[in-house]
Structure formats: C-alpha cells, structure tokens
Amino acid sequence: MPESFAGTKIPVMSAADIVTARRVARDLCERLGLGKADQTRLATAVSELARNVIQYACEGVCLIEDRSDSHTRRIRVQVEDRGPGIPDIPLAMTDGYSTSGGLGAGLPGTRRLVDEFQIESEPGHTRITIILRKPL
C-alpha cells in the first residue's frame, strides 16, 4: 500500500498568500513537535521561495507535506511556478547575485536554512523542493 502524506496545497498569487504559506509551514512544524528555531527556519525558507514566485513568476503553487517515517520527522515543501525560469542556476545560487536589485541572499540563504535543497528550472517551469529533517 502506498504511503499517503498529509499535505496542504496553497496557491501563491498575492503577498497575502505568502503569509498563509508561512503559517501552514509553522503550524505543521508545531504539530510535529519541532522547536521554535525550526519553525522560524522553515517559515522563513517558505517565505523566501513564495516571494520569489510572486516577484518573478507572478503566480505558482506551494505544497507543504508531512513526510515523516518511524525514525525521522520530515517536512517537504515544494514550490512550483510557470514563470520564465532561472537561466543560470549556479549563478542564482551565488551569494549577492540578484536580478531584481534585492540582497541576493534568497536562494543561497534558503539552501543554508534547510537540510535538503533541490532546484529544477527550465523556461515555463521551475520547481524548488526543500526538506527539513529532524530525528525522532
């Protein structure tokens, strides 16, 4: 039997949705008994990714799932959009690089905040997957 995961799908279309996504992430952390530091860590990461969606792709989807098993508590967040894509991923992952006059800390910072970070991008489809892990 395939395992089913409790997940929440949040459409990201306006700045208010960023707040919603952040709250869902925080609530799930709390439900799994993760501490305040982890809650803030994940909420901030979700905030960064969702804000990127609004800024570069206008709209997208944020999927927040509980993927825990018997040894590890695991939260997976997947943020997807149909925007122009990231032409040069290594460059985008460099500290201080930004195409929009920002701080250039969003993507590299998010990678440092989470335990697993995966990015796939082509014109018309970008997907970033992050995972927060904590042994039971």
Binding site: A37, Q39, T40, R41, E48, A105, P108, T110, R112, L113
Partner: peptide, 10 residues
C-alpha cells in the same frame, strides 16, 4: 530564532 535564521540566510 530570528537571529539564527538571519545569520543562516547570510
């Protein structure tokens, strides 16, 4: 927590 997150973000 905020301080920790900020430094991690760089």
């Amino acid at each position: 927590e905020g301080a920790q997150t900020l430094t991690k973000l760089g």
